[in-house]
């Protein structure tokens, strides 16, 4: 790790600490009631004492998100490959996809509940529905931007469509794909919590809505902190995988050695 990245990381950490400190000080200075806005120290205390109770909900939310995410990735890759490899499919399917993606997903939760009852299934479906679209778009774009000259070179060699897809199309799509995974995992999370808030008796979303109706504001914020932490962890995980797999797209100087 170079000096520069170390300094950047220190700055990022300092900003987070500063943010919480300012929040704490502001609440103390203006005497804000913890019913309105609890101090971070109160939120962390709540997190600590209630963790045994919260933990099953964390697991519920996380597993629901992952299932919805994996299904969304599968669907997204399939649709993206289909749309990206043919101009006609691209032009035909795009308007429908745009229409589907612009529906506010909170509006489809009641429909899923109607079909499958409240609980885990609508949460999985909501997170799937909300996260597959960026993947479709990115895979399709990656495949559609293969240079025509390169395709000519390979076709003149007698390459099959599969040869071209395997050697050129898919590797070229990887940076797009991993970039979309980072977006999609955050979206899947939003979908799960959304559905849990509306129609579930488990999960962090449900904890938050219940706590808020009991005016247990510190617990609401504890839920929020958990969601933020999980979101950052998942994003970091996929960033790391992305750097490993598609470092070539970032033109980092230290690749020379490899």
């Amino acid at each position: 790790m170079t000096n520069g990245t170390l300094r950047r990381r220190a700055a990022a950490a300092a900003l987070i600490v500063l943010f919480f400190a300012a929040w704490e000080v502001a609440c103390l200075m203006f005497g804000v009631s913890d019913l309105i806005l609890p101090r971070p120290s109160q939120v962390f205390a709540t997190l600590w004492t209630r963790m045994p109770v919260l933990w099953p909900h964390v697991v519920q939310t996380l597993s629901t998100t992952m299932v919805g995410f994996v299904l969304g990735v599968l669907l997204g890759v399939l649709l993206g490959a289909l749309i990206g490899s043919s101009r006609i499919a691209y032009d035909t399917a795009y308007p429908l996809l745009i229409g589907f993606s612009s529906i506010p997903k909170v509006a489809v939760v009641p429909i899923f509940v109607l079909w499958f009852g409240s609980g885990t299934v609508p949460a999985v479906l909501t997170s799937l529905a909300i996260c597959f679209f960026p993947i479709v778009v990115n895979i399709a774009t990656g495949l559609a931007t293969t240079e025509p000259e390169l395709e000519d070179v390979l076709k003149a060699l007698g390459a099959t469509k599969f040869d071209i897809l395997w050697n050129v199309g898919l590797p070229r799509t990887m940076p797009f794909f991993f970039a979309s995974l980072k977006v999609a995992i955050s979206y899947a999370f939003v979908g799960t919590v959304l559905s849990e808030t509306v129609a579930s008796n488990r999960g962090i979303g449900n904890v938050m809505i219940t706590a808020s109706s009991n005016f247990n504001t510190p617990l609401v914020f504890a839920g929020l902190f958990i969601l933020a932490a999980l979101g950052i962890a998942l994003y970091a995980m996929f960033s790391l995988i992305e750097m490993r797999v598609t470092g070539w797209a970032n033109r980092k100087a230290d690749l020379i050695a490899t």
């Binding site: 240079e147 000259e149 390169l150 000519d152 070179v153 390979l154 003149a156 060699l157 007698g158 390459a159 040869d163 050697n167 050129v168 590797p171 070229r172 990887m174 598609t246 070539w248 797209a249």
Partner: peptide
């Protein structure tokens, strides 16, 4: 046919080294 072709745009694959790029036709022909 399996002819060799080259255009003005070199279209080498950015994720492969020069060696692997040059080797590509051997994977196909």
């Amino acid at each position: 046919l399996r002819v060799g072709m080259a255009f003005q745009n070199p279209t080498l694959l950015p994720w492969l080294t020069i060696e692997k790029n040059v080797m590509l036709p051997l994977k196909i022909v």
